[in-house]
Amino acid sequence: MQVMLTINGEAKRLSITPGDLLLDVLRRECYFGVKRGCETGECGACTVLVNGKPVNSCLMFAAQAEGTEILTIEGVAPDGNLDPLQTAFLDHGAVQCGYCTPGMILSAKALLAERPDPTDAEVREALAGNFCRCTGYLKPVEAVLAAAQAYRQAGSRGVSTKSGRSRGQARKKR
């Protein structure tokens, strides 16, 4: 069967089998930033945004993606300029082996689109479905909070009138 969808802003018509999972189809189409992890919806390595919402692509049939807009990590920095989230992950040492990183960045991107000034707890909840088996979660949480501030300063997600929380204050809250 055929499925029409948009991937990273590009309209696509893909041939799929009725039982294909979205994860398999995306990897077949060479979106290798969509990682195959547990394949049971636990680890979040295969996270993509479907119409702006984080979803485990291992638990979604490709046929269900008809007419949707999908964002994978490949679409986050299409012109080669890193997204503030990506920069913050690098700056904060929030990447070790990198396998969980695409999923974490996409989950965080969805959070910041909805909550430009998230609390520490909101960031932790947003990342709760993305398992990291190397470095842990402290640095990714710090990176997301720093990226939120960078977004607000750049005004790229709407200018917030609230003053940005510094990393020191964010840490004290825990």
């Binding site: 979040g44 984080p54 485990n56 969805a110």
Partner: peptide
């Protein structure tokens, strides 16, 4: 009921 990814579906 599970992570945000699962609750979205």
């Amino acid at each position: 009921c599970g992570s945000i990814q699962n609750r979205n579906m």
